[in-house]
Design a protein around this nucleic acid. Structure first.
Lengths: 301, 301
DNA sequence: TCCATTCTCTGACTCTAGTCAGAGAATGGA
DNA sequence: TCCATTCTCTGACTAGAGTCAGAGAATGGA
């Protein structure tokens, strides 16, 4: 990586943390500790289970308990029995707690506004545009792709979103039962492989491989969350799964797709897949593609 | 301010602090506390006076002393007598300290690179461009303009930079002694007024006013640091000084300028100044401008 | 019904990041 | 020469942010 790019990023980090650090301190400036403020925020308007708070904030159970006790003493929070499970307790904001939270929100807004306030209208527009760009690309750089068990909740979430989207986009809906199946076992090694892309703790994309005899495999379940489209994630997933396939000795990749999925079709074409005659009778497919991994294979990123 | 803009800024802040916060933790990940690491960094390759460290980091003297003791115990720092003043002590990095500092630097580089690494070349370019834009505009929004005493060091620094720049740009140099004088007294109330623009602790621009009889005043010493040009700071300084002039009952502003100062001339024209015949015999001036503050005056920002 | 597990809470710690007061040496202007 | 000031350092203290171990209640599968 060129040093001047790195230098640029470090300068950006310095300036931004200085400016945005001041924003974070806003949470403090209320005689309340940062821990308490974060918890107050995280409980939210609806209340929240204590264990959920613990896992969302990544805090020790003893610590959370103590923070809740402090907020309770200030009359901002009530901790009571939750739902059906008698062990789980639920924290809820009192009226005073809600007011306090709204105040934190207001201050946060105010300080965000104070960044824009000294700028002219044109500068504001440019700032917002540039911020959105940085944020999108940061998200792109935060994506981590890894092998997942199709039974994991994140994997389930992806597959569900994938099916839902096909249902919306296909002219006459999508009924998984009518399609050639790719069930959990098919996507679990050694029969197949599922990759899930995560950003923060959210699954944002997936792709699967189903190994066939004869050094062949089929690409299935290519999906990218709407929020992160246009960031090249589809291409990264495809490159990653191709690399994994090559590692497993696969020499030919095949896939079929529906005519409504323009971005996917474009992706396959530009990634070196060529259209071939139908090699199966998938009822939802209109195009069949194939790519040889022997020569000119996309190297792993 | 529209709520969606504010929302945008807050989202940006969240994403960036999450990502960049991880960068800051890199300083920690060495079994050294953040305070120690910051100090190690601040001492620098050349060594530094303890009192300078204290003021640059804004820390309590006792605290700095203790941090230095800890670094000394680890063999990273030596604290010894400084220069002529026997009270002042100077901290210097040992070989081990320099190595440690280089390691922090390397890690910081590495983590900055890790942001760019997952991106394609085109995405990197866009990221760098957007980061530079956000940073520039953040700097613009950090600028604070206030009245300064011309004897203050920040004011001196501005005036010196102003004179130096004229010396470079004017065809045959600039000798303040030959110019119509505007000394400290002229720029101090009630005779005049000096505004200095600061960002962080750095002076980045100035403008002055010299009151005349007859509800008139002259604008002098308009200067903007090269690093922050193109951010509209000149216009802000001008608007601010006009507002101050109006408050003091000034009805007509006048100024003269040199033909090499294109941006300034353009600024004056677009800010409503119209060229008038020479009203003084300033040897370095080629253009004389005037603006009435009675009607259509630029409102204070 | 039993027993391992889960969830919450308390008590006893630790580490970091400070603040505050004051002592002692050096300095500099009256 | 004196005395207020400056600079550094030490001791004593505080608050925040957490960690760790274990107790007690509730749960759920064998």
């Amino acid at each position: 990586m060129e040093q001047d790019l790195v230098e640029r990023v470090r300068r950006f980090n310095r300036t931004v943390t200085q400016r945005v650090g001041a924003l974070d301190d806003a949470y403090l400036s209320r005689g309340r500790s940062l821990g308490q403020a974060r918890l107050l925020w995280e409980i939210g308007g609806e209340g929240s289970e204590v264990r959920a708070l613990r896992s969302r904030l990544g805090l020790d159970s003893g610590y959370v308990s103590r923070l809740l006790r402090a907020l309770q003493a200030d009359g901002l929070v009530e901790v009571g029995p939750g739902g059906t499970d008698g062990r789980v307790r639920t924290a809820r904001l009192t009226a005073a707690g809600l007011a306090e939270r709204a105040e934190l929100d207001r201050r946060s807004d105010e300080l965000a506004a104070s960044i824009l306030e000294p700028l002219t209208a044109r500068q504001r527009d440019r700032m917002i545009t540039a911020m959105a760009e940085v944020e999108r690309l940061l998200v792109a750089s935060l994506v981590r792709i890894s092998v997942a068990d199709p039974r994991q909740p994140e994997a389930r979430q992806c597959i569900r979103a994938y099916v839902a989207e096909l249902g919306q986009r296909f002219a006459d809906g999508f009924e998984p039962a009518r399609s050639i199946p790719a069930d959990d076992a098919d996507l679990t090694p050694p029969a197949g492989l599922l990759l899930v892309a995560m950003v923060h703790e959210e699954p944002v994309g997936c792709v699967a491989l189903k190994f066939r005899p004869d050094s062949r495999a089929e690409v299935k379940r290519m999906w990218v969350a709407p929020a992160v489209r246009g960031l090249g994630l589809g291409r990264r997933l495809l490159a990653e799964i191709e690399a994994r396939a090559a590692d497993r000795g696969v020499r030919t990749l095949r896939l079929e797709t529906n005519r409504t999925l323009d971005e996917a079709i474009e992706l396959y074409r530009t990634a070196g897949y060529r259209e071939v005659p139908a090699f199966n009778d998938e009822p939802y497919a209109h195009h069949w593609f194939e790519k040889s991994l022997d020569a000119g294979a996309t190297p792993a990123p």
